Amino acid sequence: MAKAAETRPILRLKNAPERDPEPATSEAEATVPRRFVVRLLVVCGVLACGLAVAVVAGVALGPVRIPPLEVVTALADDLGLPLPGDGSGGEHATVINYIRLPRVLVGALVGAALGIAGATMQAVFRNPLAEPGVIGVSSGAALGAVAAIYFGWTALTPWMLPATAFVGAVAAMGFVFMVAALRRDRGPVTLLLVGIAVSAFFGALISVMVATTTNNEELRGIVFWLQGGLGARTWQHVQLAAVPVVAGCLLLTVFGRDLNLLLLGDDGARAAGLDVARQRVVILGLTSLLTGAAVAVSGVIGFVGLVVPHALRLVIGPDNRVLLPASALGGAAFLVLADLIARVAFSPTSLQVGIVTALFGAPVFLALVLRRRAGGLR
């Protein structure tokens, strides 16, 4: 009996080390999200600082130069932050608060929407050449806006233009999904092909309206809207775009993990437990609404959703949990700077921002493609 009693502590001591690895394992697992959070905060913090600099530069520079400190003071006063000075924006208060700041904020909202929409489309279609208008949303918005100008609906209310643009974007999205549902195939290839057909058809209708218009003012308005611009944006445009863009960006970031799974292919995503068809429709629907809201207040602006996510992916990697918010911040900064160049580079003439994004975006994207191909050949 004494020997049996003596062996019990020994047995407990032998079994005790088997429980020791548990704290180490949980600690190792806990470091993974901590590293991810640190990485996310660093990337977004750097890009947020870049966006802040772009906003200040966009408000300060122009035909009338405003000291950056005066801009910062006025912005701080708008945000209710205590800073030295009277916070009134000085002698340039009207220029800051009613001319440049609304334009810059609309540019930031549109750039954020197009940037995160581009990153989402590239993940869904597993193609770095995908962009926000790939399923015909931009073409639908363009058709709605051009129709409003062509038929004179804009005379009823100035908000008829963004309203018809948004309705056109939603209609295009609904048509693409309806055709895919009738075919019982909501795969990326089907959606892409239907989107190309819809874009071509809507483009043809726009060309008919441009060719048959007899009013030079209408023609000028159509051309300017199709080129994309931020001129004459007001606080009402900011209010119109702010809610859908901010809400859409926040909702899309929730799907970062699902988009990572979609990068594995449909079979791999299903094996991981993802309802591929349903999630693809939800994500694309949300992206289309976000794109429609952006295009409705700015016109058709290209290359933001194509270049920004592709460039950031080369720097920070393909993890969509980080790439999506980074693309929103990067797209906002990119479009604000592009609009600044459009206003000051050819002063006193002001270009449409869509022209500047194409002039800079196309060569940059070509350089990224060549760099990627060269890296692959090595």
Score class of each variant (00 low, 15 high):
residue 78 D to W: 02
residue 63 P to W: 03
residue 72 V to P: 11
residue 352 Q to M: 14
residue 114 L to G: 05
residue 234 T to Q: 07
residue 339 D to K: 02
residue 103 R to I: 02
residue 319 D to H: 06
residue 333 A to P: 14
residue 270 R to E: 14
residue 359 L to T: 14
residue 140 G to Y: 01
residue 220 R to V: 00
residue 252 L to E: 12
residue 116 I to V: 07
residue 281 V to C: 07
residue 350 S to P: 07
residue 38 V to M: 02
residue 338 A to C: 12
residue 120 T to L: 03
residue 193 L to V: 14
residue 255 F to C: 11
residue 57 A to K: 02
residue 219 L to P: 13
residue 313 R to P: 03
residue 186 R to Y: 07
residue 104 V to Q: 09
residue 226 L to F: 04
residue 41 L to Y: 13
residue 292 G to N: 05
residue 339 D to F: 00
residue 306 L to W: 01
residue 51 L to P: 05
residue 357 T to V: 01
residue 121 M to V: 06
residue 77 D to G: 13
residue 64 V to G: 14
residue 217 E to H: 13
residue 223 V to A: 01
residue 135 I to P: 03
residue 120 T to Q: 05
residue 314 L to H: 10
residue 304 V to F: 08
residue 144 G to E: 09
residue 300 V to F: 01
residue 153 W to L: 15
residue 250 L to M: 10
residue 250 L to H: 07
residue 369 V to T: 11
residue 91 E to I: 12
residue 140 G to A: 10
residue 150 Y to W: 05
residue 341 I to R: 06
residue 16 A to R: 06
residue 217 E to N: 15
residue 377 L to W: 11
residue 113 A to E: 11
residue 141 A to P: 02
residue 318 P to A: 13
residue 140 G to W: 00
residue 131 E to V: 02
residue 291 T to V: 07
residue 336 V to G: 07
residue 324 L to K: 01
residue 228 G to D: 04
residue 260 N to L: 05
residue 358 A to D: 13
residue 372 R to W: 07
residue 123 A to D: 13
residue 162 P to V: 06
residue 299 G to E: 03
residue 56 V to N: 09
residue 292 G to W: 00
residue 232 A to C: 04
residue 368 L to E: 13
residue 160 M to Q: 11
residue 132 P to Q: 03
residue 13 L to H: 12
residue 52 A to Y: 08
residue 342 A to R: 04
residue 35 R to V: 05
residue 186 R to K: 10
residue 212 T to C: 09
residue 50 G to D: 11
residue 149 I to S: 08
residue 333 A to L: 08
residue 184 R to L: 04
residue 359 L to A: 12
residue 102 P to D: 10
residue 177 F to N: 06
residue 68 P to N: 09
residue 167 V to P: 08
residue 298 S to D: 14
residue 7 T to N: 15
residue 226 L to K: 02
residue 330 G to R: 05
residue 347 S to D: 15
residue 98 Y to M: 10
residue 258 D to A: 13
residue 34 R to N: 00
residue 92 H to S: 10
residue 250 L to T: 13
residue 255 F to N: 11
residue 120 T to N: 06
residue 139 S to K: 01
residue 47 L to V: 05
residue 307 V to E: 07
residue 306 L to Q: 11
residue 22 E to Y: 10
residue 195 G to I: 06
residue 306 L to C: 06
residue 242 A to Q: 05
residue 208 V to T: 10
residue 27 E to R: 02
residue 55 V to H: 04
residue 199 S to L: 05
residue 148 A to N: 03
residue 124 V to A: 11
residue 378 R to F: 06
residue 53 V to K: 07
residue 211 A to Q: 12
residue 150 Y to T: 12
residue 82 P to H: 10
residue 328 A to Q: 02
residue 164 T to V: 08
residue 14 K to R: 14
residue 115 G to M: 08
